[in-house]
Amino acid sequence: MLEKPTWKSTLRGFLYLSPALLILITFNIYPIIRSFLMSFYTDYDYFNDVVHAFGLDNFITIFQDPSFLTALKNTGVFVIGVVPISIALSLGIAVLLNNKLKLAGFFRTIYFLPFVTSVVAVAIVWSWIFHSDYGLFNYLLSWFGIDPIAWLNDPKYAMPSLIILSIWKGLGFNIIIFLAGLQSIGKQYYLAAKVDGASAWSRFTNITLPLLSPTIFFVSIISIINGFKVFDEVFALFNGRPGPANSALTVVYYIYQKFYEEWQFGLASTAAFVLFIIIFIFTIIQLIIGRRFVHYN
């Protein structure tokens, strides 16, 4: 744009933006502001929408609530369990698929299926796979002489089950993104590296990884944010419960409980706000790390 913005051109710009902006403000921006404010409602009459008192009591309350602390811990375990394995696994599969492989298109479809399938359907299938008596998983383990595990009913194994399901579910999306990234790396770098005496592994670490770093960065940010937001998988896998003995209670699940089951709108908003701050901090840390290691052309 060579013209300088004038009031007239700005106004016209807003006119074009208004349809999208209107929807965004109504359904995103306004609720965000309201729930931020709501986190400070300490005495709220939601029948008449009257706030009798504001304060920081909600923050004190949730940090003294053992359920919330469990939820924080579980969410942390979930993110640490899912994100690195999911990224490494999908990167490995993407590299394999990117090589000249027979039936590559077929495999791409197979891996992408979980992404387009509804979480509920997926979770129901997996709840059968994890079934302690009839489940495929235990059957598989029995080949190696491992005794049946009550995956979904034992508090020790509920989180691992959830992590396995989520890794599998996330593969498709990550693989597609990685494949797109891999295909944008020029072939000439690999030829040059071969001539320079680089083995297949050196080519992967010296060419593929650095040139794929923007994609890896993108996928890791998205995965971490999605990891912190996990809810559907828990709800569907454990039949509307946060796992046995709260063993799969996540922060979003906690928010859901407070909001829809206990009608504690203030507490729910506070928890949401805390989650927002956590995700915000992680994203900033990633941006700082990213600036140092990610190569952009």
Binding site: Q188, L191, A192, P210, L211, S213, H295
Partner: peptide
Amino acid sequence: VFQNYALYPH
């Protein structure tokens, strides 16, 4: 030496 040089951009 390649036609497009193929220098490692990173």
